[in-house]
């Protein structure tokens, strides 16, 4: 049991982070805390993607980095596609977090509060 847990540690960590982020998003009414929860969720997904492409004793998937003993051994490299996905996802989550925080700033200017239950006016 413990061994299985340790072997899959990155996946367990990412699932935990995802749930923590979702909790913050659903149950916190402070807008900044919601933004934090969202970026925790983003990090959880990034960890998941990186863990997906990892192989033990592998090298970075850079073409010129490959060992020069004759042929390039692709099996020794970590999988490059999840890393490319992660890079894109980091950029996107940066944009989303920035947008969310800037909207929170505008909300604060209007309502003088960052608390969703005080600031929200649209009901029903």
């Amino acid at each position: 049991m413990i061994e299985a847990l340790m072997q899959n540690l990155p996946f367990v960590v990412s699932a935990l982070l995802f749930v923590i982020g979702l909790y913050a998003l659903l149950f916190k009414s402070n807008l900044i805390k919601m933004a934090i929860g969202l970026s925790i969720m983003g990090s959880a997904v990034n960890i998941f993607l990186i863990a997906l492409g990892y192989k033990e004793n592998s090298i970075a998937p850079i073409f010129t980095n490959a060992p020069i003993n004759g042929s390039i051994n692709a099996a020794k490299m970590a999988m490059p596609i999840p890393q490319a996905l992660t890079l894109t996802s980091i950029v996107i989550s940066l944009a989303v977090t920035a947008l969310m925080l800037s909207l929170a700033v505008v909300v604060y200017r209007h309502c003088g509060s960052l608390n969703a239950s005080k600031a929200w006016r649209l009901k029903k």
């Binding site: 998003l25 909300v107 209007h110 929200w120 649209l122």
Partner: peptide, 24 residues
């Protein structure tokens, strides 16, 4: 309009969660 910003914030929350689900 503070209502417009509020609507934007709500939509941002839901779409960010949805797209993280998709990525996962």
């Amino acid at each position: 309009r503070s209502e417009a910003v509020e609507a934007g914030f709500k939509y941002l929350t839901i779409s960010a969660v949805a797209s993280l689900f998709v990525l996962f």
